[in-house]
Design a protein around this nucleic acid. Structure first.
Lengths: 158, 158
DNA sequence: GATAATTGTTAGCTAAGGCTAAACTGTTTG
DNA sequence: CAAACAGTTTAGCCTTAGCTAACAATTATC
């Protein structure tokens, strides 16, 4: 449904700032963000597991809990979920492995993450800030914007 | 705590990609993102209420529910929360008002939002994509990065 | 190899942010 | 002005992602 009809109070167009987008578009923006939030955490876990395997040879729940600053119980629960989603395989008390699908997700996430991180650095953002911002931004950057960021980075290194 | 000691499996440094950040820094990145998520939705509601008041003269729950594509019940519940947080004032069945604190938050959010949106456009991102990305990115951009984005935008509009 | 330390799991709690259905209030209109 | 309609609220449900505490398994150490 669209906006309610104005009652009594007249609108004051052009007073300042951009106009409100049409309702449907506006709604789509918020929906996109909500959807991103649902997958975000999953992707973060999978990406981290991939990174741990790549850099340290294995991924253990304790490492995840330390690096994410989250309790081991939370990690344990999340691993069960990742299992159900078919992203990791795990045996109790053993280290984790990514399924093929998990590996794909980890790689995609890492690639996005890197593009955003390198872009921010190329823009002139300080490294530690860039890392923090990239971690948050990564899931909200469309493919289109990502491509533009990549091109920009290529044209602006050293 | 730091990472667990390696057991049996040796690490394979330098195989590909960036190194893992030190544990404390890594943890801080994730914590920052988690904190952002807590305030994000609140800010979105407050920002939207501000925009509605500015552009249409008043903010009604139905408008919010249409524009956010969320049920009226959800909006009603959230308004109660915003009330408790001292960000809006409302009387049952009447339209909403921002408290002084709410107004401040709305303005700050809108300003951040605009900077990110205009930056994306200046980068060359298509308008509707820029809007979607800005909505998601806005809460994850540090002040430092925001300042750089603003400077970039100023230097790159015709 | 027994015990201590570390790591992992389970149970049970909380809060947030969605939802539907039903009840209620306010506005508009025949 | 009464009925119909639009808007709002409440009740009650679900899922997710945290937490702590208690327990179980593995690994390390003496």
């Amino acid at each position: 449904m669209s906006d309610h009809q104005q009652r009594r109070i007249p609108s004051t167009p052009g007073i300042s700032g951009d106009a409100l987008p049409p309702v449907e578009q506006h709604a789509k923006q918020y929906e996109t963000v909500r959807n991103a939030h649902e997958t975000e955490l999953i992707e973060d876990y999978v990406e981290l597991i991939g990174d741990l395997i790549r850099h340290r040879g294995e991924a253990r729940a304790a490492d995840i809990s330390n690096r994410m600053a989250v309790s081991q119980a939370t990690v344990s629960k999340m691993i069960r979920r990742l299992n159900e989603l078919g992203l990791v395989t795990s045996k109790p008390y053993r280290s984790l492995f990514l399924t093929e699908e998990g590996q794909k997700m980890a790689e995609t996430s890492r690639a996005r993450h890197d593009v955003v991180l390198h872009f921010l650095r190329a823009l002139g953002v300080d490294d530690s800030t860039a890392r923090i911002d990239a971690e948050g931004m990564e899931h909200h950057v469309s493919d289109e914007t990502l491509a533009i960021m990549q091109r920009f980075t290529e044209q602006h290194q050293q």
